Amino acid sequence: MHIKTTKCNRFCLVASVTNQEVFDRPEAQASFEALFRSFDPEVQFQYFKSFRRVRISFSDALAAAEARLRLHKTDFSGKEMRLYFAQSVHIGSPRLEPPKPDKQFLISPPASPPVGWAQSQDAMPVVNYDLLCAISKLGPGDKYELQTATPTTPSVVVHVCDDERGVNSAPDDSDQDDQPRPLRQKIVQTRRPDFTPGAEQ
């Protein structure tokens, strides 16, 4: 966490002026500045009308301290004037530091995995041997009921297609070379309908 430190500027005073004439009338400004030029001829002024403040910069710290001692809470044009030493606030480092790396893994995509992170292993696939055994026993034309019907749900039945060749769909590998391969059915092209001339438009 950044540490907030406050440092007092010994060469600069801030005057809290409630008299609005100091900011509007040159005559009032001249009489206001004459109060501080008696302590330091090289004094500089900065007016902040919206804040009703005047920053007074001295060339000597002793002159600023003496002006603060003599003019603080004195009367100026019928209003009380207060003087304070200007303060500079320093918060942490003068440069913007990058964020701490302890939570950077929340950024997508993560720059690097967090400490202790490990790749999760995929689970082994589950093989239903009962289902494989039941399917292997099915032959052409047989049916296998997967789910029986209930009053609210229908039954689920698997029908095995018949073999068009009239033989087992999975012949032995030993007889495969001896038996001639059956000819595939030729795809008959769909006949185009006859053209009948219609009425001329």
Rank of each mutant, 00 (worst) to 15 (best):
I3C: 08
K4V: 05
K7A: 13
C8M: 15
N9W: 14
C12N: 02
V14E: 12
A15T: 01
V17I: 14
T18M: 03
T18Q: 11
N19G: 10
N19M: 09
E21A: 07
A28T: 11
A28G: 10
Q29A: 09
Q29L: 02
A34H: 12
A34P: 05
L35R: 14
P41G: 09
E42Q: 04
E42I: 03
K49T: 04
F51Q: 05
F51W: 00
F51M: 00
R52W: 00
R53Y: 13
R55M: 10
I56E: 03
S57F: 14
F58C: 01
F58L: 02
A63F: 05
A63H: 09
A65N: 01
E66A: 12
E66C: 14
A67H: 01
S77P: 07
G78D: 04
G78V: 06
K79T: 02
M81N: 09
A86F: 02
V89H: 01
V89P: 04
H90I: 11
L96C: 13
P98M: 00
P99R: 06
P99E: 02
P101K: 01
D102E: 10
K103P: 06
Q104H: 15
Q104F: 10
F105R: 03
L106G: 07
I107E: 07
I107Y: 06
P109I: 00
P110Q: 13
P110W: 08
A111G: 05
P114V: 11
V115W: 05
A118S: 06
Q119F: 01
A123V: 08
A123S: 13
A123W: 15
M124H: 12
P125S: 01
V127F: 06
V127H: 06
N128F: 05
Y129I: 12
S136P: 08
S136T: 06
G139K: 14
G141Y: 01
E145K: 05
T148H: 15
A149I: 11
T150W: 07
T153E: 07
T153R: 05
T153G: 04
T153N: 02
V156I: 14
V157I: 15
H159M: 14
H159D: 14
V160F: 06
C161M: 07
C161W: 04
C161G: 12
D163W: 04
E164P: 15
G166Y: 01
S169Y: 13
A170S: 13
D178W: 07
Q179K: 12
L183T: 11
R184G: 00
R184Y: 02
Q185R: 05
Q185D: 04
K186G: 09
V188E: 05
Q189L: 13
Q189Y: 08
T190P: 15
R192S: 03
R192M: 03
P193C: 04
A199S: 15
E200Y: 00
E200Q: 00
